[in-house]
Simulated assay, not measured.
Amino acid sequence: MSYGYGGGPNWPMIQARRRAEQEASSARGQAASHKATADRWKTAFETLASQVRAAVGQTGAEHREGGQCGCSSCWDALIARLAQEAQPGDGPTGGAGAATFSFTDLFRDGGPRPRP
């Protein structure tokens, strides 16, 4: 606390400091929440990827040209691409906000699909 020219506390400076401390505390809480959300999404993605790999391993599909392939190497390439896209970005949201893929990416036209 500063005692400026008037000999009393500098209330505007004290209020600004309190406001800054409250905002910093709030930002730390939000960062922890975003990290927890990102960790949950990462765990869910890894679980889904391992289940996809297990299902593909059971089918024993061989590689085919033409975009309708369901072999394990094509699925691994797709999973690796999705995992790379989900890495934290340089943007303002970072972490969880940077994930731009969805479940439909696994089954959209033109990508690997499991055989019926």
Rank of each mutant, 00 (worst) to 15 (best):
R53D: 02
Q15I: 14
C69T: 11
V52R: 02
A32K: 15
E65W: 01
I79P: 09
S50W: 03
T93P: 02
Q68T: 13
G97K: 08
Q51I: 03
A83R: 09
Q58I: 12
E23T: 14
R81C: 06
R64F: 00
A54W: 04
G97S: 02
R17K: 13
G29W: 02
S73F: 07
D105F: 01
Y5M: 09
A36K: 15
R18E: 11
C74D: 13
W11K: 06
D76H: 03
K35T: 07
P88Y: 02
G110L: 01
C69F: 00
Q58P: 04
N10P: 10
D109Q: 12
R64H: 10
A16N: 12
E23H: 05
K35I: 07
R81H: 09
W11A: 05
S73N: 15
V56N: 02
V56A: 05
A36W: 07
E85P: 00
G89Q: 13
L106P: 01
S25A: 14
A44E: 14
T37K: 12
F45A: 03
V56R: 10
R19E: 13
D39R: 14
Q87W: 00
G7N: 11
A61F: 01
E85Y: 00
G94N: 10
T100R: 15
G89F: 01
P116I: 04
D76N: 11
D109G: 05
R53A: 08
G94W: 06
I14G: 06
R115T: 07
A49V: 05
F103G: 03
C74F: 03
E46V: 06
A44H: 06
